[in-house]
Simulated scan of single mutants.
Amino acid sequence: MKTVFVVNSGSSSIKYQLINTKAKKPLLSGLIERIGEPDSPIPDHEFGMSLVLAKIGDLSRDIIAVGHRVVHGGSEFDGPTLITNEVEREIEALSRLAPLHNPANLLGIRAARVALPDVPHVAVFDTAFHQTMSPASYTYAIDKEIANKYKVRRYGFHGTSHKYVSEQAAIVLGKPLSSLRTIVLHLGNGASAAAIDGGKSIDTSMGMTPLQGLVMGTRSGDIDPAVLVHLNRAAGMTVTELDVLLNRQSGLLGLTGMGDMRDVQAAAMAGNDEAELALQVWRHRIRHYIGAYYAQLGGLDVLVFTAGVGENNALLRRRALAGLEHMGILIDNDRNELTSREARVISPVGAPVTVMVIPTNEELEIARQVESIVS
């Protein structure tokens, strides 16, 4: 049995799965936490990786490759990439664009390359799927010399999820991927939308960083950049304080004091006006992107919900799409209320746009991409 070892490394954690790609399921999964924290028995990622391999045991003999999730690949990486020392250096250089993520991803890469030196290691980038966007889509209208020097452009994220889900939609519907105009709504604590034409991303809501776009658990999403200038001048807020405000103290948390959608929804149903407004802002932003992507795609064949909220919250799916019947987007209430871990259609039979719920599986998609490289 041949397997791919998938590693998602954070600054103080290692999340992992051992996946049999033919069976399309994990043989083993787990999480090592509190790496390097005070009083933790796990001093660093190398020690953490040794604990992971001890858990895997004899199954490690069947590993044909290791797949590493890397958040930011810039414009340098447009697909899965065999990791060499040079690739490591390029990922490190891209840490300027993803200072919270790429350094943590590198810790896992280096620890795994030490622990498993005799198998290939492959980087799979969150940004890679969106490298098919046109210059018109990814270019910010700022001074071009500054933009080029500091790599300022839209990159997009959640690409592994958007790729997996859009391809699964075609498989479930029994239609060629090349024939489908698809909008994917990846709605979780982090959230993004993508317009996918014939299997290729043509637009996505996140930008140079994962901050742009939809309202998220703690991130603001779209905001007038002059707000930052105003807060600097009027409130004396520093760059660091503004960064914390937009990434960690905004979104649902900023509007309600609650960063978890389940808590916000419960409060709204109990009559909390702030929570209800937050849901309306969340919904308004989603509909904004659906309309924009409908226009960009020249119509729509499939709309897919995925990730934690998208997969599990029937009420918010219904609220997000209510009133879009004129665009051919409808939900069958009975289908929508069904609870399942399987991909499914929730629009009425014969609806102009097929609305679906498809559980994402980023680890399996990483394993598939890794397998395509090593084979």
Results as ranks from 00 to 15, higher is better:
residue 3 T to R: 13
residue 6 V to T: 07
residue 6 V to I: 14
residue 9 S to T: 08
residue 26 P to C: 00
residue 30 G to A: 10
residue 30 G to T: 05
residue 40 S to Q: 09
residue 41 P to N: 07
residue 44 D to N: 15
residue 49 M to L: 11
residue 60 S to R: 12
residue 66 V to H: 00
residue 81 T to L: 05
residue 82 L to F: 03
residue 85 N to C: 00
residue 87 V to E: 06
residue 88 E to S: 02
residue 94 L to K: 03
residue 105 N to R: 01
residue 106 L to P: 12
residue 107 L to S: 13
residue 107 L to G: 10
residue 109 I to S: 07
residue 110 R to T: 11
residue 112 A to I: 03
residue 115 A to R: 07
residue 125 F to L: 05
residue 133 M to D: 12
residue 134 S to G: 10
residue 138 Y to T: 01
residue 141 A to L: 10
residue 146 I to W: 06
residue 146 I to V: 14
residue 148 N to S: 14
residue 149 K to S: 14
residue 150 Y to E: 14
residue 162 H to M: 02
residue 166 S to K: 09
residue 168 Q to R: 15
residue 176 P to I: 07
residue 179 S to G: 10
residue 186 H to L: 06
residue 188 G to M: 08
residue 191 A to M: 01
residue 194 A to P: 11
residue 201 S to R: 04
residue 201 S to H: 01
residue 205 S to I: 04
residue 209 T to P: 09
residue 214 L to T: 05
residue 216 M to A: 03
residue 226 A to C: 03
residue 231 L to V: 01
residue 234 A to E: 05
residue 244 V to T: 14
residue 257 G to S: 11
residue 259 G to E: 14
residue 263 D to V: 00
residue 272 N to H: 06
residue 288 H to R: 13
residue 294 Y to L: 14
residue 294 Y to A: 01
residue 298 G to L: 04
residue 299 G to D: 14
residue 303 L to G: 12
residue 316 L to G: 04
residue 331 I to T: 08
residue 337 E to S: 11
residue 348 P to L: 08
residue 353 V to M: 03
residue 355 V to H: 02
residue 355 V to C: 13
residue 363 E to W: 08
residue 364 L to Y: 15
residue 364 L to N: 09
residue 367 A to L: 05
residue 368 R to Y: 14
residue 369 Q to G: 15
